Amino acid sequence: MDSPTVFCRILGPIAIEIDGAPAQLGGPRSRRALAALSAAHGMAVPDEYLIEQIWGDARPASVVSALRGLIWRLRAALGPQVGPRYLRRDVGGYALTIPGPLIDHQQLAARVAGAMGHLDNGHPSWAAMDLAAAVALWRGEPWEELGPAPELIGIRAKLAELHDVAVEELQAARLALDDPAHAGPETARAVAALAEAVVATPYRERRWELLALGLYRTGRQTEALAALRGIHERLINDIGIEPRRSLRALEQRILRQDPDLLLPGPTRAARPRNDR
């Protein structure tokens, strides 16, 4: 018998899919246990930490037995081929050992990295496919069942940044799919998505840069300049920083109607973090 296909989702509510169907993981305590195990990236999790994540101060009298029973039910929910294989007991505690490529947050990172390479090498259609798949993986805050866990602040910020990059560079790929001088449906689609993206995350300069470029290519120069000037004022007035050099350079290029803005070419210039 072939082994079932397993996929773990932590970008939003915890879920494990087996052959494409979601396993019935049970109630909030089972889901918190599974979230805590998945956040350990395959390492064993001590019983005391699991107990704290599952019950907090409301732990039952026989809490160790309760933990054993909860893990047994989780294994049963995953099935006889998946449960014993991926939910194991080790000397340090329990471990969830689903391989990284079968977990959504590692797929997110891999797809974004691959798409950046496609953009750099002049393959926007391949980049768009990878980035659309990356964006689709995101369903909400990673490991949301664990609440504001201090130990997850760093990895959550890193994953949120990857998601933001995927949103932005998907639109960059779409802009590159059309002839810039005769902007078509992909450009219109990118402009619409970027108009929403700048509302959702208003201080990310990359999406304003792409929005202005898309507006300019659709013949809306005045709106493009208004967008750039708007983010300029917002950055200075709200958080006290100047826009990065690439944003200021784009404004000048639009003002002089630089013909190179309507030539085919990469839409992702190098963007060092200190581009100020």
Score class of each variant (00 low, 15 high):
Asp258His: 11
Asn274His: 08
Met129Pro: 01
Glu251Lys: 15
Asp2Lys: 10
Pro272Cys: 05
Ala227Cys: 09
Tyr49Val: 08
Gly240Met: 04
Gly26Glu: 02
Ala35Glu: 09
Leu137Met: 05
Arg89Asn: 07
Ala224His: 11
Asp258Pro: 08
Ile18Gln: 06
Gly93Lys: 04
Asp275Lys: 06
Gln81Met: 13
Ile71Lys: 01
Asp260Thr: 15
Ala36Leu: 14
Leu262Ala: 08
Arg234Lys: 15
Ala269Leu: 14
Glu242Phe: 12
Leu247Ala: 03
Arg32Pro: 08
Thr267Phe: 06
Asp47Leu: 03
His41Phe: 15
Gly114His: 14
Cys8Tyr: 10
Leu102Val: 02
Ile153Pro: 03
Tyr203Trp: 13
Ala66Lys: 05
Val64Thr: 01
Ala172Glu: 09
Trp208Gln: 03
Ala115Asp: 06
Glu205Phe: 08
Pro148Gly: 09
Gln106Tyr: 14
Thr222Pro: 05
Glu151Tyr: 11
Ala76Pro: 03
Leu119Gly: 05
Arg29Gly: 04
Gly122Tyr: 10
Asp57Ile: 00
Ala181Thr: 00
Lys158Pro: 02
Gly26Asp: 06
Arg271Leu: 13
Ile241Ser: 09
Arg85Gln: 14
Ala176Ile: 12
Arg73Glu: 00
Glu209Leu: 09
Gly92Met: 04
Pro80Lys: 02
Pro80Tyr: 01
Arg85Glu: 14
Gly26Leu: 09
Gly12Pro: 10
Glu169Leu: 15
Ala23Tyr: 08
Trp138Ala: 04
Leu261Arg: 07
Arg220Phe: 01
Ala181Leu: 13
His118Gln: 12
Leu263Pro: 01
Ala95Arg: 03
Leu131Ser: 07
Ala195Asp: 15
Arg68Lys: 14
Leu34Asp: 07
Pro272Ser: 08
Ala181Val: 05
Gln24Tyr: 04
Val112Leu: 14
Trp126Asn: 12
Val91Phe: 07
Ala193Leu: 02
Gly240Trp: 03
Leu131Thr: 05
